[in-house]
């Protein structure tokens, strides 16, 4: 008497199919990801100060803490403005004029009055132009803002470089210690290329130093030439909280 048994075969081939399917899905994901690699945009951010007059060559950059601490200083009171009360003096005289009955006197008085008014008007216009000129020459008082010339020993340019480094550092920051710190000195030639990068002081965190180095490489691609066609050198302090100027 033969007992009948069903034989189940095919578990091995099913496992092989499953393995192949997983490998295919994994490979598909890998290639899909490599095609859809999104690169972070490193386009510079432009800030426009709508409270100040635009200049011919506005500068890009992030306002620094120094620039944002307070509003621009109020313009000094113009001495020429003080001449305004003089304008009233002739008016007073004008009121008194009808008391003169002579027509010659009256004509002379009118001419004098007109001359005086023109003179005052010319003074006011000149004072306004002078105030504007002075304001334009001084800049808005904020680094990296329109009107900045970058001639003050490279101070505005330094702020600009600091902000670019800060942006790049946010993308590369990494560390293996609690409070890492790196002081690095950058030298930028007249064409805006980094020709010197030296770590002056470090807390010894190699990972943090590498991230600083990467941030400098990343930011260096967008450095403009320093103002005045001169070489620029500045020390920067890199901390997890951000980048500061030494």
């Amino acid at each position: 008497m033969m007992r009948r048994h069903t034989q189940d075969v095919g578990l091995g081939s099913s496992m092989a199919c499953s393995l192949l399917l997983h490998a295919a899905v994994f490979a598909g994901l890998f290639f899909f990801n490599s095609f859809l690699q999104v690169k972070p945009s490193t386009a510079p951010v432009y800030y426009v100060d709508i409270l100040n007059l635009p200049t011919e060559h506005p500068r890009a950059g992030t306002p620094t803490a120094r620039g944002n601490d307070a509003a621009p200083p109020a313009p000094a009171p113009d001495r020429e403005e003080m001449s305004l009360p003089q304008r009233k003096a002739p008016v007073v005289q004008k009121k008194a004029a009808p008391k003169e009955p002579s027509p010659e006197n009256d004509r002379e008085f009118r001419e004098r009055l007109a001359r005086l008014e023109r003179k005052v008007e010319a003074r006011q216009t000149e004072a306004a132009i002078e105030a504007l000129r002075k304001k334009t020459a001084e800049g808005s008082g904020r680094s990296g803002m329109p009107g900045a010339t970058g001639t003050e020993a490279g101070s505005d340019y330094g702020s600009y470089i600091q902000s670019r480094l800060k942006d790049a550092f946010a993308l590369t920051i990494a560390s293996s210690s609690r409070n890492p710190m790196v002081v690095a000195r950058l030298t930028i030639d007249r064409n805006g290329r980094v020709i010197g990068f030296r770590i002056e002081r470090s807390s010894g965190d190699k990972v943090f130093e590498d991230s600083v180095s990467q941030a400098v490489d990343r930011a260096a691609a967008h450095f403009p030439p320093p103002p005045g066609g001169r070489e620029f050198q500045q020390g920067f302090i890199f901390k997890p909280e951000g980048v500061g100027i030494k």
Binding site: D8, S14, M15, A16
Partner: peptide, 18 residues
């Protein structure tokens, strides 16, 4: 989890056929 996934999918194929 990959092991679980591979084996369970293999079992699904096998059971489906059976």
């Amino acid at each position: 989890l990959c092991f679980f996934s591979i084996v369970s999918l293999g079992i699904i194929f096998y059971k489906f056929r059976q």
